[in-house]
Design a binder for these strands. Structure first.
Lengths: 354, 354
DNA sequence: TTACCTTATGCAAACGTTTGCGCAAATTGA
DNA sequence: TCAATTTGCGCAAACGTTTGCATAAGGTAA
């Protein structure tokens, strides 16, 4: 046996990967025994198990995921699709998805759509190709056609959406109550004596942004404020968009006295333009963002925003996936979770100092 | 044939994935013919190719990566390890790695170490387990033991490091000239009449931070400025660290007149403390960061920083990997690339307005 | 007509695992 | 002591591809 080991030791030099067969050869047993020994099967003697583990260690054995997954039909991989990993919101969601899934033996594959529909489709294809056991996704702004998401479902791969989802897909969803959050923002601004509130909106074909617009409109109605279409401008919500839209708003015959942006980056862009024009925030124009990105509390003034509880969203999305996996047959009813978000008032909208 | 197709059509309902065998059965040919048809083999008739493609489409066929990769020994996956995906630097590097590799038919698997050595080791293990064709990595702050990286090399998997690398590993590397960049920062501050320059440093066991410290020291020497150890404080460079270190610096008997942080987040934390203490930036204390994070040009004052050319780093790192793959036998000499970074002067250090 | 070449496809092994079944040997029970 | 059970392992098939070799049909040249 020792001779055989030393023969295989040489292999280490050649950079060929060690397989279960190599271990079997060294010990003079079969690959099946080795496989069972490694997975701690009860019908393998302790003696053999110890020997196998030792040789495995010696030969620097690493199981081959491809073979295992192919044989068992389970890859233990979960695909995660996000628009872009440069916001603390998505970063934190992903971190928490990972935390929950790692515990259950899953690894995640993060892909980014960069808000592009085409890239998103490619991502879905490569995830399916990689044989992931599930997909957790937040849709790109561009995405309207849902056929690629249907494809995931049709393959029998569990799909969970978070933040940016679509009711039409009829899958598990985790997000916040966008309507209510938006409504609350307007309530808050009203309480600060703002009466002409503009909304830098996301594209209304995406449900969350549609809900934010609705919440905004309904709150205005509640306070009998007129709804002016020129004060509602849809965009991609990037910083650049925020700048552009803010300039547009300043060019109106009558300026707004508050701006509510459906995204923090847009709010930031707006803030820059306001400061550049020496407009006092919040005195002349109050400003509110959405997402509680870290920069909202760095700057001067700090920006009022909505905390979306990213940790919880990540955790719940991962758990939704796990539930699907654990009850593959049982027809679990759809899980639609809308967390209550939290308005965090900061200097940018705090006119009435307490 | 049409009957057979319709029989298989039913399969679509059952959510079982279509295989190459199914296509073969429908057409009454063998799997090998189908395989060749799909890969456009020259010895398959056009008639068959067209038929195969059509049936594949009909049955919603998707190749199984696991089987292909197992058979061919190539997974077409490249693992990317980064500390954390919440900085625009890493985000941009990854984006560019992806762009280059996608063109060559590779997909990437992004993993984050969250600056933890343990997590990083786990990531390496799962990447190797997944049988990636290569690894492109930037090391966690915590990492000192390189044995897990040695493991990658010992498996014959190409390894490329960027930004945070280690000479000891003897692998391809792409980064900037940290020494020179740091030197330039001090030169700039000296030109702004700063004579007591503090350095919020990264941990010196990481080469890039060591080089930044060296650059700082050597520049001080050049200008005959005294090197005061109490002005050099190592940390993790988080925003919190920046705050803490800045407080420490303000508590010194004699305050510095400039602070050079080896990371933008630390610079931001420092800036907050300075503003909270009503210290004028840059008049009383000038401030410089490192990495050119997006928030450096948002705030008031905007923070002077170093642009590390993340796009170029990503692109070059990916290309370094591709070179290794393309010349597996030929002993390519090591590629150590140190780009020249760019100092971007903003308000936080611009005392002498031009 | 014969020998040879091309074209289009089939056959079977292989990649590295896992796993149901089978079968000795060892152990247990009465 | 003998049957019954348990223990420890081997055999072989399977997962879905790819690929070297074989082969059969048709075409070409002399």
């Amino acid at each position: 046996m020792c001779k055989r080991l030393s023969k295989y030791r040489k292999k280490l030099g050649t950079k060929k990967k060690t397989t279960i067969k190599d271990i079997a050869n060294v010990l003079g047993i079969t690959p099946s025994a080795v496989s069972r020994a490694l997975s701690n099967h009860s019908r393998i003697s302790d003696k053999t198990k110890i020997a196998v583990r030792q040789v495995a260690e010696n030969l620097n054995y690493q199981p081959n995921h491809l073979a295992t997954a192919l044989r068992t039909g389970k890859s233990n991989l979960v695909g995660v699709i996000i628009p872009r990993n440069n916001s603390s919101f998505f970063s934190s969601v992903v971190e928490n998805i990972e935390k929950v899934l790692n515990k259950e033996g899953y690894n995640i594959i993060i892909t980014q759509s960069y808000e592009s529909y085409e890239k998103e489709c490619n991502n879905i294809d490569s995830l399916l190709y990689t044989q992931v056991d599930g997909v957790i996704a937040s849709m790109a702004n561009e995405t309207k056609d849902l056929s690629f998401y249907e494809k995931i479902k049709s393959k029998g791969v569990p799909l969970v959406l978070f933040d940016r989802g679509e009711d039409d897909l009829n899958v598990d969803y985790v997000g916040i109550d966008d309507y209510l959050s938006s409504f609350n923002v307007v309530e808050h601004l009203y309480a600060q004596n703002c009466r002409r509130i503009a909304h830098i909106a996301g594209f209304s074909h995406t449900r969350i942004y549609e809900n934010r617009i609705k919440g905004y409109r309904d709150a205005l109605k509640k306070f009998d404020l007129p709804i002016e279409e020129s004060l509602i401008i849809e965009s991609n919500l990037s910083m650049e968009d925020g700048r552009e839209v803010m300039k547009q708003l300043l060019d109106l015959p009558e300026m707004p006295d508050a701006v509510f942006a459906a995204g923090d980056y847009a709010a930031l862009g707006a803030l820059q333009v306001l400061l550049e024009n020496d407009i006092k925030v919040p005195e002349e124009i109050a400003l509110v963002g959405f997402s509680n990105e870290s920069f909202t509390y760095y700057g001067k003034p700090a920006i009022t925003s909505i905390n979306q509880h990213s940790e919880k969203i990540g955790k719940l999305a991962a758990e939704a996936f796990l539930n699907r996996i654990k009850n593959p047959t049982k027809k679990v009813s759809l899980n639609k979770i809308n967390l209550k978000a939290e308005l965090i008032v900061r200097a940018s909208s705090n006119k009435i100092k307490k």
